[in-house]
Design a protein around this nucleic acid. Structure first.
Lengths: 210, 210
DNA sequence: AATAAATTGTTAAAAGATTAACAACAAATA
DNA sequence: TATTTGTTGTTAATCTTTTAACAATTTATT
């Protein structure tokens, strides 16, 4: 029996990239692929590709390569992309609205089921078919629903406060766009995606890689 | 003479978080801080904090800690936050517009100097004081300007094509929001910030960490 | 002035990730 | 059927990062 390796953050990013190119290959009608082909398309060495796939419990055929359909299924299972999960957005500013209207939901298996904000000007408007609710309703709505994930796009100074509310309402994972370290219980997962931090990381690399 | 360590990606993220809490401490009037205090505030062990600061060439006093002003200056220098750099946005959809109007620019030392799109409906409109130009003008405008960084928020299927154009116009760094591995010359830096990938990473963690 | 307490700087050990190497195997060819 | 070729699975070596340990140093206290 194979023992599934624990994936590092870096390897997850690589696996996401593999999925991207595999789906492109599939669209072109390709049926099998070798580790070097994946490597070529992604800029990653074939050794690393093979090691990554091995860690996932790969099942390639010597001299032929991997079956694309199979690899895609493994990756989509690994990432849980075909299992619908309900999400809500907290904070409907520019970013919240952009996310609400973007194509990320279907690609990731999430369904945007609710949006909350406390600005009277946006409450009751509809974005992508979802009505914006007053934040005061948050606790009640979440308690009564199957929403397990919250996208946090509020100003940094209310991030922790909102997080506490979300946790008390039973949210189990948070996609955090604020540049704040959120304090949560052990069983709540926070994925940080602060855009400022991304931009600062770029600034750092530009300065130091030359 | 101290030799500056090479920072891993993970350590950069930690340093960004340190800066965040240090500026908060400063606002509260605090003047010095210990590695354990930083650790407490960030959820990172004090050992790692000390090691990170050491790698940056820290200069703390035993029994007292680090001077906050000094640490902040070091970090801002490291990240190049106080040196203004010009940027442009390529693709003015929901996300591009949200970024244009957000507060990330001043926080990172970048100045948004141009926006390009090819949708006649948005060309010539103004966002945050910057007029949206037709993409056909891109090459000329960039050649004539000091813009060195481009934010790529176009549909994935034109990402590489736009990248080639940007590179030919002399762009040296790209903040890539498309879920595409961009092919660029060695001297061009690409920082990937695909939101889908962030969301998929969250999905993965939710599935595997329980 | 001497001692105790707290905290850093720095080295060393452990853990984790990447790269390299190659045996095993399937397919193609003679 | 035997041989060659190409490609994977898997182990081993190298490199990187994290964690631990503790000596050195500064401040406070007696």
């Amino acid at each position: 029996m194979l023992k599934l390796k624990r994936f590092s953050r870096a390897s997850i990013v690589r696996l996401e990239l593999y999925l991207e190119v595999l789906e492109a290959f599939q669209k072109e009608g390709k049926e099998t692929v070798t580790s070097s082909e994946i490597g070529e398309a992604t800029g990653i060495t074939s050794v690393k590709v093979r090691q990554d796939l091995f860690g996932m419990g790969s099942d390639g055929r010597p001299k032929v390569g991997y079956e694309i359909v199979h690899l895609i299924r493994m990756l989509r299972d690994l990432f849980d992309l075909d299992n619908q999960k309900n999400a809500c957005i907290i904070g409907c500013g520019n970013l919240g609205r952009a996310l609400a209207g973007s194509g990320i939901w279907e690609k990731s298996g999430y369904k945007l089921s609710a949006i909350f904000d406390n600005d009277p000007a946006v409450i009751s408007t509809t974005i992508n078919g979802v009505k914006v609710r007053n934040t005061t309703e948050l606790f009640g709505v979440l308690k009564a629903s199957k929403i397990e994930m919250a996208v946090l796009t509020v100003p940094a100074d209310v991030a922790q406060e909102m997080t506490d509310l979300l946790v008390s309402a039973g949210i189990k994972s948070i996609w955090n766009f604020t540049p704040t370290k959120l304090n949560v219980p052990d069983d709540v997962i926070v994925e940080n995606q602060s855009l400022v931090w991304g931009l600062i990381a770029l600034s750092f690399r530009v300065k130091s890689e030359k």
